[in-house]
Nucleic acid binder design. Structure first.
Lengths: 413, 413
DNA sequence: GTATTTTTTTTGAGGCTCGAAAAAATAGAG
DNA sequence: CTCTATTTTTTCGAGCCTCAAAAAAAATAC
């Protein structure tokens, strides 16, 4: 039941709007902000003067803008890097990476660590995460009190409230409420996000021209993941992070998937699936983790000569194509970004993928669907986490108000 | 790029909120409205006094509430039936149905007509629609000037802007901009909606307890359609009405679908698919339209004895189950309403459906997924149309404001 | 008939945005 | 070097809107 708008919500929302405009535009002048937000100059003047007074925004030096026009020069407004910091924690297979980022988005401290996530106990996994966060907070460059938010990302399923990891392929452990644990430990608000959703968030910041209102980010790696932005909002399931594209059914009763079921898209297109098809091990072979190096060798072989390797990539393309076709039947076609090690082999995947997609309802415009590839997912995930955490600070801390529980806002991508 | 909130938007939004509260609650008192909207009594008093003055709301007679408590009795506020009227036009296979509905939601005039939609020319189809609308407008009970909106619904694909039918199984014609045509003809704002979306809207009004934020309405008829509400909003594709659940791929390269492709869910679960499987005609047999009576006989036979009829329903259940499983992988399970003539045979479909769904990622909680059936889709569609048109009047006419182009608002279900 | 209770309206205060006017800061002209 | 044109930013008063508190209204209970 949506609730009426209070008078004081007005200021809050318009403050948030100004901050968002500055974050998007970089160093806009007050006049530019007035134009993009549609508010009057007087309002922008009042709000930005407040924000500067509070140390959230900072005026750029007048010299910075090489003003060629005459008239009073515009003075650029930027985010004050010292207004706050956020922390990102990305947990992936055998790898833990942490960064501290200032309010303007610059990395100011980071640390990475190899772990054996697949065999670690629940306690060890949690312990490693809290320990690495603690070490970063102890960094002399960091003012602990400035850290306003921690955003974790993990491959796998998280809950809608972004509190817990429910299931992940990188560990046999389930249902770890990382967000609650870190919050309790450090007293800093935290969220636990799905890695592919963060990829989507990052793409939107990186290339807003291409990835604006509707697009899809697909992770082609050990598993198949998806981040989906629809109508400018991150799409999540109703109970979980959702978008389990990899586990849509491609062939009922088909190949064995890592999730234990049969016929999922991932059981044909995940690294382990491509691997076992290339090695002709049979579709019931237990999934194994394949190194990135081995996958690159496999791709090279497939490019070199026809054979089971090439056929394995074809099958992957077919599964992805039919899966995307079914997805497009529901949401209409949209730009797709293929991310992860197998995205580097997209040339091997694409023909079969396009052929399959053309057989489906979503494939009517299959020619016009465009794919982009990005072999390295980690930087994207971290960047998405950072933006997520920063927009949280923008909204919930620097433009606070009632408006429901904290964190229950829209999924602004 | 979202836009700042102007000062005058405030009133507009809160007016809309009050109207919406009254439409939902029936005859709430001012105090009740204050409670549900979260606005102060003074504000509600001011707004409702405006609305009464404008003839949008009307105070109920004090006697109506059998007040047992002491104190000043609450006076119920209701929608003034004479504030406006809307018209619904439902175009389905061989059938055209029109109704005029007052602002409080009561039908005040209606007309139905059999047509041969499959063979009619484009002009004839448009002509029948405009003619029936013209006749209703000529009804002496109707004040033409009060008609504030026409909502059409049709089975098939419509565009996101709700202006045109892009493709429909009930006619070989494509791309008819019904909304524009009726608007030009009568000067009344019109929309062209997808029938299954309207079913979903209606379900939400009929049973808000069960169908609140997330649910699915599936039409089991000649074709398979779907209306989807997610997070309280009607889900549409980015370009078209979307949610073409019936054309998700069940078996790549499988049975021939009415849409010309192969292996769609509909090619196993549409009436024609069940029919040809029951008659053992082979999966490539050209789809034919089967009468509701024939379908009922088929279902009766299937219930009576094992055989191809029963097997046909099993296959339908399997296709629907895998399709729902894939859908649930994306959006998480939600309550499902099965609507249409084959929903009356849901007992034959359900076992295989549940078995299939249990094989999928969305099927982890397959036991808890609940299905409701409603054999008659037409009343639902009309009701949904009516509510859609009425909420348009609530928002765009009785609480007008800038806030982007008309009709570009949220998909409030 | 008076007290009590509950709903609704009235009133005054405080905030917010807006438009217009003023102030500030520069480039160009002479 | 001064003056003018131009553009950006701030200031100021007006007009709304919501809110809290008080007042008024309308019933029941005793």
């Amino acid at each position: 039941m949506s609730v009426g708008i209070r008078h004081d919500d007005l200021r809050r929302r318009n403050r948030a709007m100004v901050i968002a405009a500055v974050r998007r535009a970089g160093r806009p002048s007050r006049t530019e902000i007035a134009a993009t937000t549609g508010l009057s100059h007087s309002t922008i003047s009042a709000i930005s003067s407040d924000l500067i007074g509070e140390g959230i925004l900072a005026e750029g030096k007048p010299s910075e803008v090489g003003s060629l026009k005459r008239g009073r020069p515009q003075v650029g407004l930027g985010l004050n890097p010292e207004a706050a910091t956020v922390m990102t924690v990305v947990l992936s297979l055998n790898f833990l990476s942490v960064a501290v980022i200032d309010y303007a988005g610059q990395v100011i401290s980071e640390e990475q660590r190899r772990l054996d996530t697949l065999t670690m106990s629940r306690e060890a996994l949690i312990g490693e995460c809290t320990a690495i966060v603690r070490r970063r907070l102890a960094d002399p460059d960091i003012d602990v009190r400035s850290v306003a938010r921690i955003a974790l990302a993990i491959q796998g399923i998280t809950d809608t409230e972004a509190r817990a990891m429910l299931w992940s392929p990188i560990t046999p452990q389930t249902d770890i409420a990382f967000a609650d644990i870190l919050e309790a430990e450090f007293g800093i608000p935290a969220t636990m996000e799905n890695d592919c959703n963060m990829m989507a968030v990052a793409l939107r910041w990186r290339d807003p021209e291409r990835y604006r209102d509707d697009f899809i980010a697909i992770l082609l790696s050990h598993g198949i993941g998806m981040g989906l932005v629809l109508k400018g909002e991150l799409f999540t399931g109703t109970h979980s992070s959702g978008g389990e594209f990899g586990h849509m059914i491609h062939r009922p009763g088909g190949a064995l998937c890592r999730c234990g079921r049969r016929g999922c898209v991932e059981a044909y297109a995940g690294n382990y699936a491509i691997w076992r098809n290339a090695r002709q091990l049979g579709e019931d072979t237990e999934p194994v983790d394949v190194s990135d190096a081995d996958m690159r060798t496999l791709a090279a072989t497939a490019r070199e000569r026809a054979g089971p390797e090439r056929e394995a990539y074809r099958k992957a393309g077919e599964a992805l194509g039919y899966g995307l076709g079914s997805l497009f039947a529901l949401i209409d076609p949209a730009p797709v970004a293929m991310v992860g090690v197998s995205a580097a082999a997209f040339d091997l995947i694409e023909p079969a993928l396009r052929e399959a997609i053309a057989q489906t309802a979503g494939g009517q415009h299959s020619k016009s669907i465009s794919f982009d590839t990005e072999p390295n997912e980690l930087p994207l995930i971290r960047e998405g986490c950072a933006m997520r955490a920063l927009t949280f600070v923008d909204q919930e801390i620097f433009a606070p108000g009632v408006q429901g529980r904290a964190g229950s806002g829209k999924n602004v991508a």
